[in-house]
Amino acid sequence: MSIPSPPRAWREQKYRYRLVGVKCTRCGLTYYPPVVVCTKCKSTELTTIELPRKGVLLSYTIIHYPPVEFKEYAPYAVGLIKLEDGTEVIAQLTDIDFNELRPGIKVEAVFRCLKTQGEEGIIEYGMKFRRALEE
């Protein structure tokens, strides 16, 4: 459990409130989270992009024994998701019946409360994924 930190929560909003990654202007590869040097071509010219909000579930798990700051939310599902542009993200899955979980289902990002930061009660918001409404 990290120490409650208003500056950190504030700084990370930029990435949490939208799905923000970077794209290498030379070779076109995208990265999430953002990096400062492209792994493939070593270019430092990367521009911030908003990633697609839809994707497909590659793998999932159901967390029964959570970290202390997520204790009240268990059980919940977490997935590895491939977005429409090929970028992959790890995210919590929400509004979904565990029995519907299987690799290949279509999912989309939604804005949700992620957790409450420690005793001081900073509430962190961010992206979770749910089953895509239209298939």
Binding site: E12, Y15, R16, Y32, P33, L58, S59, Y60, T61, I63, Y65, P66, P67, F70, Y73, Y76, V78, G79, L80, V89, I90, A91, Q92, P103, L114, K115, E124, G126, K128
Partner: peptide, 20 residues
Amino acid sequence: EFVASTGVTFPGLNALIYRL
């Protein structure tokens, strides 16, 4: 910032690999 913030645990990450 980008992974632990989802609530995933260490066994959870290994579970993602297991299923793949």
